[in-house]
Amino acid sequence: MTVHRAYLGIGANLGAAAESVERAIGALAELGKVQRTSPLYRSEPWGVRDQPPFVNAVVLLETPLAPRALLDELGKIELRLGRTPGERWGPRAIDLDLLLYDDLEIDSPELHVPHKHLRERAFVLVPLAQLDEQFAPLRDALDASELAGVVPLPRSDPPSRESVTPMPQGRLRPLVERIAALARFLASGDAVRVRVSRGEDEIELARRLRPALAPRSSDGASAELAPLRVDEIKADIVGIFHARPPAPAEGDRFEGDRELGYIEALGIRTPVRTMGAGRIVSVATADGAAVEYGQPLFLVARG
């Protein structure tokens, strides 16, 4: 089956607008796979000016749905999340727009793709360009005054998100432990920012520096600090992991390639190597544990 790439605009300006946008993003997961989500932005209202500011975001959805069907489903989500049909450009609980759909151009009474006002609206183009660089020229074509009306929303508590696929039981714990290990690593002072990628998922943790300690560039502004890369060393066969004594521990440094242990399966020992220099951020698997294919054994910081 073909999967289509649709960029969707989300806007809300009633009630807890940011929470509505987050709920809408959660609901979109029912229509396919939410591949990317822009940060939330606050923008001045469009059209009818006498209303509270909007909260906006753009998501990239991979969906099997055809454009018409997608539009219908978006309408259902709008209804479910509290939009009252009728008023155009008025205050609303939630507004979902189909901005782009693959490379399609559609011009019908119900549906325009790319979205009619795509090129005029800063609150769409700013998050869109943030999601995908290819839209940056469109954003940059807008007046600076319009762009100034769209500002990133300060993040408060992490919003709760509706999820169709709950995290399977027992899988959250290792995740929490690994984040805690990353936090300890940050606190140890070797890095101010670390980023771990695993497939499509990515987590970045940063430590706030005291102003006096923050590195300054010549013009006095805070230098952009490149995040430290953290690799996962994973099991590539199923077996029993044995650490090589002395057992590798959190904080161990190594200069070159080093054997951290081996996986024993069917009487054969397959070495587990560091594949270069680095420092152990966390030990993810205990000595003597059974490991499955792809199971993380160590988190290693590079550079």
Partner: peptide, 21 residues
């Protein structure tokens, strides 16, 4: 137990990983 990546030759037909599991 995960025994390999998507292609069956490397997972559901991966005899050493299945026996080891």
């Amino acid at each position: 137990f995960c025994v390999g990546p998507g292609p069956a030759a490397r997972s559901y037909l991966n005899v050493p990983n299945i026996i080891s599991t």
